[in-house]
């Protein structure tokens, strides 16, 4: 299986006149970093959320890590997908009543039935990779935004996913904190993780993305490799967007 995610004519409507996703077609290769960009309301968050079943689709077909999903929104399939696909949210969404260590070991223990000791060792190793091993016994409220997001990344990685989805991971962070999270994501990408990242961080996209997907009003405007997109994007709308972003 060399294709991690495959979307075919995926559409979703919230009402008669509001199409959140409009005939989206795309493929994400294994090991690739795909950055998804676009103005607000373009459907980029909705799209990424259909990849792990947090949003249902009305038409079309999805194939995530080989598992098929369509408008039936089959819960069993979605559960299987979620074991192999991790997600990092804009608002971190850590569990405030648990320690950092418990946040990370919860899912492996409860879902993968990993032994507690084993899960804790893995969690500490991930925290060390993220550079925050000393925060393990604290609670989320005691950490900065950047630290919390790195915990969120570690939490998703603890499940050994094949694909990582990032929904605007740095949009809720103070500018000084953005770098530490992007660095963590950069390291992850160099290690060969398949990543789909919704972001406004042009610098990160330029450096790390293999391909860029530009969306507007639920439609795919352009899907090019990163170099092309940032130097001479094929579509007029893409170029306009890039201009707006850099000014």
């Amino acid at each position: 299986m060399t294709i991690a995610i495959h979307a075919q004519s995926v559409s979703k409507s919230y009402s008669d006149d509001h199409r959140a996703l409009d005939e989206v077609n795309l493929s994400v290769n294994l090991g690739e970093v795909l950055v998804v960009m676009g103005p607000s309301g373009s459907g980029k968050s909705t799209l990424i959320r259909t990849f792990n079943g947090l949003e249902s689709i009305d038409e079309g077909r999805l194939e995530i890590v080989g598992i098929r999903l369509d408008s039936n929104h089959d819960e069993r399939q979605i559960k299987r997908i979620r074991r192999r696909v991790g997600m990092v949210f804009q608002q971190f969404n850590l569990f405030p009543h648990l320690s950092i260590l418990d946040n990370i070991t919860l899912a492996p223990i409860r879902v993968k039935k990993t032994k507690k000791k084993e899960a804790e060792i893995r969690a500490m190793s991930l925290l060390t990779q993220m550079g925050i091993a000393d925060q393990a016994m604290k609670h989320p409220a005691q950490l900065s935004g950047g630290q919390q997001q790195r915990v969120a990344i570690a939490r998703a990685l603890a499940m050994d996913p094949e694909v990582m989805l990032f929904d605007e991971p740095t949009s809720a962070l103070d500018p000084e904190r953005v770098k530490e999270v992007l660095d963590a994501m950069r390291t992850l990408a160099s290690a060969g993780m398949t990543m789909v990242v919704v972001t406004h961080e042009l610098g990160f996209a330029r450096e790390v993305a293999d391909r860029v997907l530009f969306m507007d009003a639920g439609k795919v405007v352009e899907l090019s490799d990163a170099k092309t997109f940032f130097s001479h994007a094929k579509e007029e709308r893409s170029r306009r967007f890039l201009n707006q972003m850099t000014n």
Partner: peptide, 8 residues
């Protein structure tokens, strides 16, 4: 949502 994304 976060719990669901983890497979809980």
């Amino acid at each position: 949502e976060a719990a669901a994304a983890l497979g809980l």
